[in-house]
Design a protein around this nucleic acid. Structure first.
Ligand SMILES: [Mg+2]
Ligand SMILES: [Mg+2]
Lengths: 479, 479
DNA sequence: GTGATGTTTATAAACACGACT
DNA sequence: ACAGTCGTGTTTATAAACATC
């Protein structure tokens, strides 16, 4: 009943037996044809976080929802690593990510039964795999890793100088901040909006792979602009940028001091955010994806740890652990694990795939105590609930567009999960602003853009409680 | 400059050198005298999560804020385990918790410099250590663990039947859901409100320890009431309880099916939530705490792992790991680690110390799409931002009380961090309701209480944009 | 350059619950 | 009916990589 043809390998205990999805009403997820995505170094761990992978999976469907099992399958199908190399614990991590990140929302049809995982519309950046697709020949600047073809993913401890150190893990313990994460930014399908600030982009990207154009979009991922007023004691979480680091000239002059805030927006170092969008807009965000992978079934290199396996012994040499931040033993070099691609490629904003997030900017919200006041509703938080700025509406797939394909369910009342494809803010009058926003990640300029947007396209402000409640609320807050 | 007298042990690398806090303006944190809190099994890992410990620490100050270093110190002083037994990585975990949980908000005074960690008022349940203080002689019902006096916290591998399995960890890998977490619930200091549903409480708690009365409050911790209407596709995160599991008679009949939601509220099994509050209301939430610990400096049992240490080898026997949820090898019994107290005491709600959290109840918020509509501001979310129900105000220390001791800083405009001591909802007219809420954790009944509260004490609804914006917003939403 | 402080991601685990066997 | 297993979810603990000051 599964689509991915159970592998019966080290995952046998995970195979489903319930027939709840026998009807298989959900679409998409059609077993990818042959345009392998990860064929360069298939079986290598993809440089994407679990959060990104889940978004890829969910956003690959038109309904923008997916069951857990299908998420597993989608990831396995597009990244053989997880089917053939990773320990079964990777599924635990998937579930962990689904629960931990509130951008992933579980939904159940009215009559309960199966439950789907969706991406909260305001957090959905509509990441799709094809957006980060890397052409098989473009091993130039970005995209360092994945070079070692099928790195020896066997076992057999390779006695690290210490002794039985480096215990031979199968899963890369931490995705090492690949310096070439490709961060996709989806745009309304209208203007391609080429915007390449640096020459890092070479138009030879669409090399010769699958039927899809290999977009290479790289831009600051998280929209966390800091525009906090000068409140004497403001939560650092959203402060110390716009008004504070803004010199009298209005230029964001590197953060002042409230350093170490969450979600860096500006690219840490390097150049401006690079964005490259070929005119081809064939994306994975629908029923037009035929990704695939080398389904050559590497027979048995899965979970056959003979004897010396698991658990990095480590320390054995470490004196009483001194630093409170644990660190790897040093990785004696020479003996890198199958997952230790070890490609010290340049630096890069290291970008991420986190949900769209904004901080409540004091510029927008006068000040009033900064805590629960402004909107008591926004604080619920299990984690960092605050926020609340028009950026939400803009930088994400707005669910406020009236005639957007609403994905109705037979029951009628159904939240509309849209992606930027059908994104239309307000009444088509804000689109250009929206586009500009995604590109312009500077703090105070972004806040200005937001203000402009919020006051355009909504001149009537009559529909406070209706579909455009976003804007209504916004206006109420902004007066 | 530190208060806790640096130990210079395995923590040397952590000692501070900056003189930023030379003035040591912050109060409290006075080195506890001698009323050891954890003397029964001092050096044992306390049964509290890091999140709880941090709350204990921060709430022990009158300013309700604390620097990271002081949090370290406070915890070390009150739980010798961390100073003498735990690996230095525990500080990493503290920092991790501070960052991860958005209930912990970092603040910096206007002129930046030091940064304080605070608890978001709407999430602060005002947990203090004295509230969960367990009398040294009450080893009866609850409070199973911590019996083994100073369990042999040495090293030396004790060859588990397998071979070098059970690699001898120093830190308990996961706080094993002690079945006796004492969950404090703070009340307005007026009515003690004794409320013991079962006889599990034996009044011999105040045995002979410190000057403080050992309260024993045990009640469902997280206020996550599920009152979701029958929207065809509602986020499971907040649904399937009230209206669904509510039989025509109105009794919450165990959850229907939308199982596995976050934050169980009702006690999983066992009896009703037990609440015991002695009339003595001396709490740790101020400058009246003189906790302490056995500062007998166990010389050297800290980090001297001779050779066989660390990293549970595990698996060695495990076939190819089958389950996607990793599990311990089985713990051959007989050879329990120092942290393996192994007290299979009954069952218990296992309660937690998570921040106050509520779910947007469809009963309160008619329906309107359930996504960003209701309050566009609330969605920002990095994690689970939604929510939004009057419960926030009630079940936490409301920051809306006008004459509450506001903890002004010299700069004047300062958010008021209050704790339930000075908690007053609206205008003292809601207190009884507030108390009732903490006790009544049933879903739909709770929602009713909330509605009652929301419509009491706010008859004027005139101050929409002022301090009582909470209520103004609430009224707008409820019409 | 080093250490303290913060932020994120990865993994392992414990455990709850419902469905199936 | 009942127990054991499994899939799915939710949390907490740890280790780590990195960033910034
Ligand atoms: Mg989630
Ligand atoms: Mg935090």
């Amino acid at each position: 009943m599964r689509l991915g043809s159970g592998d019966g390998k080290a995952d046998s205990a995970e195979e489903e037996t319930s027939g709840t999805d026998s009807l298989k009403v959900e679409e998409e997820h059609k077993a990818p044809a042959a345009s392998h995505l990860w064929q360069v170094g298939a079986f290598e761990r993809p440089p994407y976080s679990y959060m990104a992978l889940i978004q890829f999976a969910i956003n690959s469907t038109t309904s923008k929802r997916m069951t857990l099992k299908d998420i597993y399958t989608w990831i396995e199908e597009h990244f053989p690593y997880f089917r053939h190399v990773a320990k079964p614990g990777w599924k635990n991590s998937i579930r962990h990510n689904l629960s931990l990140h509130d951008m992933f929302v579980r939904e159940s049809p009215a009559n309960n039964k199966i439950s789907y995982w969706t991406i909260h519309p305001q957090a959905n950046r509509c990441l799709t795999l094809d957006q980060v697709f890397k052409a098989p020949g473009s091993s130039s600047s970005a995209c360092s890793e994945q070079q070692q073809r099928t790195p020896e993913l066997s076992r057999s401890a390779q006695g690290i100088p210490g002794n039985a150190k480096a215990p031979e893990r199968k899963m890369k313990p931490l995705l090492p901040r690949i310096d070439s994460y490709l961060i996709p930014v989806q745009f309304p399908v209208t203007q391609p909006l080429l915007f390449s600030t640096l020459e890092t982009f070479s138009p030879d990207l669409g090399v010769s792979d699958g039927p899809r154009s290999c977009k290479r979009v790289k831009i600051a991922p998280k929209v966390l602009l800091e525009t906090e007023a000068t409140s004497p004691l403001a939560p650092v979480k959203s402060e110390t940028d716009s008004l504070k680091s803004q010199t009298p000239l209005g230029f964001p002059r590197r953060q002042a001091n409230g350093s170490r805030r969450k979600q860096q927006l500006v690219t840490p170092r390097s150049q401006e955010p690079e964005l490259v969008l070929p005119d081809n807009s064939a994306s994975d965000s629908g029923l037009d994806n035929d990704f695939s992978f080398l389904e050559e079934a590497p027979s048995q290199l899965t979970q056959d740890e003979g004897s010396s396996f698991k658990t990095p012994v480590k320390e054995k040499f470490m004196k009483p652990p001194a630093s409170s931040t644990p660190s790897k033993p040093i990785a004696e070099a020479s003996c890198l694990q199958p997952w230790e691609a070890e490609s010290p490629l340049a630096r890069d904003p290291l970008t991420e795939f986190s949900p769209v997030r904004v901080s409540r900017s004091a510029a927008l919200t006068p000040f009033k105590d900064n805590y629960g006041t402004l909107s008591f509703w926004e604080t619920p938080f299990k984690d960092l609930p605050y926020f609340g700025s028009p950026l939400d509406v803009m930088s994400t797939c707005s669910p406020a567009s009236p005639q957007t394909e609403t994905l109705e369910t037979p029951t009628g009342a159904r939240k509309r999960r849209s992606c930027s494809k059908e994104l239309q803010v307000g009444g088509s009058s804000n689109r250009s602003l929206l586009e500009g926003l995604v590109l312009d990640t500077k703090d105070e300029s972004l806040s200005k853009i937001l203000l402009d947007i919020s006051f355009s396209g909504m001149e009537e402000e009559n529909s406070i409680g209706t579909d455009s409640t976003y804007w209504g609320q916004l206006f109420n807050e902004l007066r």
